[in-house]
């Protein structure tokens, strides 16, 4: 599509959408949000970019092939599920690490295997959607 407004607007939009998608991913820790919705938003950014500047430009901007991103995401998700092995707990049990936790109920910065899993989900959704959309765009 050859539209100056769209092309110009896209530059801002893509950055905003990708940033917002990461925000949604991290927000999913305690509030509505998470990897799935984050991945969808992030993919939307690149879909707009592909519509405005063509899939070649979008693929170049992404650097990695979207299929590879999805496969890597699956790997990361499995890794998150496997982390329970560290403490010998049953498979998929969430592992938590509270960085700098204080005595008086201050939890510091909570890091968890749940977040790792969610990052995997984010990448799987992101990669899978872009794979489909790019394939369709290139066919038409």
């Amino acid at each position: 599509m050859n539209s100056v407004i769209l092309t110009a607007g896209t530059r801002v939009l893509v950055a905003l959408l990708v940033l917002f998608s990461v925000f949604m991913l991290l927000r999913g820790h305690n509030e509505p949000g998470g990897g799935f919705i984050g991945g969808l938003i992030g993919a939307t950014g690149f879909v707009i970019y592909a519509i405005a500047c063509g899939t070649d430009a979008a693929r170049a901007a992404l650097r990695a092939a979207p299929e590879t991103v999805a496969a890597a995401g699956l790997g990361i998700a499995i890794l998150g599920a496997l982390m329970a092995a560290i403490t010998g707990q049953p498979f998929f049990t969430g592992q938590w690490l509270f960085l700098g936790a204080g005595e008086d109920g201050d939890k510091g910065l909570p890091l968890s295997s749940v977040l790792v899993f969610d990052v995997g989900v984010y990448l799987v959704v992101f990669g899978a959607i872009l794979t489909l959309v790019f394939a369709l765009e290139e066919e038409i």
Binding site: A128, I129, L132, A135, L136, E139
Partner: peptide
């Protein structure tokens, strides 16, 4: 969602 995305590509 995943299944229908696939099915649409298949229809195409």
């Amino acid at each position: 969602f995943g299944l229908f995305a696939f099915a649409l590509v298949l229809a195409f």
